[in-house]
Simulated assay, not measured.
Amino acid sequence: MKRILAIFSLFTLLLGTMQVYAEEQVSEKNYDYTNQKFMATVEMLYMEGHSNDDLSNCNVKQLYYEEVAEMFFTKGMSKKEILNYYEKEQGVQALNAPPVKGFNLSLWLTPFLLIALVLIILYFLIKKWKANQTVTVYEEGVISSELEDVYESIIDEERKKFI
C-alpha cells in the first residue's frame, strides 16, 4: 500500500512540474504588444492585406504579431532588420509604404509633381482669362439718358421694398 501511495505521489509531483513548465513556456510568449518600437515596426508591414483588421479576430495578423514579437523581443532584432527580413522574403509588397529608393522614388515624387504642374497651369489660365476680360468703364456724363432712367427706376423699386 505504501508503494502505491509513493508511486502515486511521485506521479502527481511529476505532473505538477510539467504543468509549471508549460505555464512558464506560455508566459514567455506573452509579449508586450504595446511597446512603441514594436508597434512602429508592425505598422509598417502590409500583412498580406490584413494590416487594417482587428488583432483579436484575424489569425493572419496574430501570426505576424507573434513572428515580429519573437524577432523583436527574443532575438533582439532591430526594426530595420525585421523590415529587411520581410522585404527579402516577400518583396516590397510586404511593406505598407515602398522604400524611397530606385523606381519607388517616382511613386513618392509623382503626386507632388502633378499637383505643382496643375497649380502652375491654373495660374497661367487665370492670368490669361483676366487679361482677356473687357471692363467697360463709363465716364461721368457719357451714360445715355435712357440708361440713367433704367438705373433710377431700379433704385426706386429697391428703396420702396425697405420703406
Rank of each mutant, 00 (worst) to 15 (best):
M1D: 12
M1N: 05
I4S: 03
I4Y: 02
A6W: 03
I7W: 00
I7H: 02
F8E: 07
S9Q: 05
L13N: 02
G16I: 05
T17I: 15
M18D: 05
Y21S: 13
Q25W: 02
E28F: 04
N30Q: 15
Y31A: 05
Y31P: 00
D32P: 04
F38W: 01
M39N: 04
M39H: 02
M39P: 00
M44H: 01
H50W: 07
H50S: 12
N52S: 12
D53L: 04
D54F: 04
D54Y: 09
L55Q: 06
L55A: 14
S56M: 04
N59K: 14
N59F: 08
V60W: 02
V60E: 13
V60T: 15
Y64G: 03
Y65T: 13
V68W: 01
M71R: 10
F72C: 02
F73R: 01
T74V: 15
M77F: 13
S78W: 05
I82P: 00
I82K: 01
L83T: 03
E87W: 00
E87C: 06
Q90G: 09
G91Q: 07
G91L: 06
A94H: 02
L95T: 08
P99H: 04
P99S: 06
N104V: 00
L105P: 00
L105M: 14
L107C: 06
W108M: 09
T110M: 10
T110S: 11
P111A: 09
L117C: 10
L119S: 14
I120D: 01
I121C: 10
Y123N: 08
F124T: 09
L125T: 13
K127H: 11
K127Y: 05
K127M: 11
W129N: 12
W129G: 09
N132S: 11
Q133C: 05
T134W: 04
T134G: 00
V135N: 11
T136D: 10
E140H: 06
E140G: 01
E140F: 13
E140V: 13
V142F: 09
V142C: 07
I143L: 14
I143Y: 02
S144F: 05
S144V: 03
S145Q: 14
E146Y: 11
E146G: 12
L147I: 08
E148S: 13
E148R: 07
E152W: 03
E152T: 07
I154L: 12
I155G: 01
R159M: 11
F162V: 12
F162H: 06
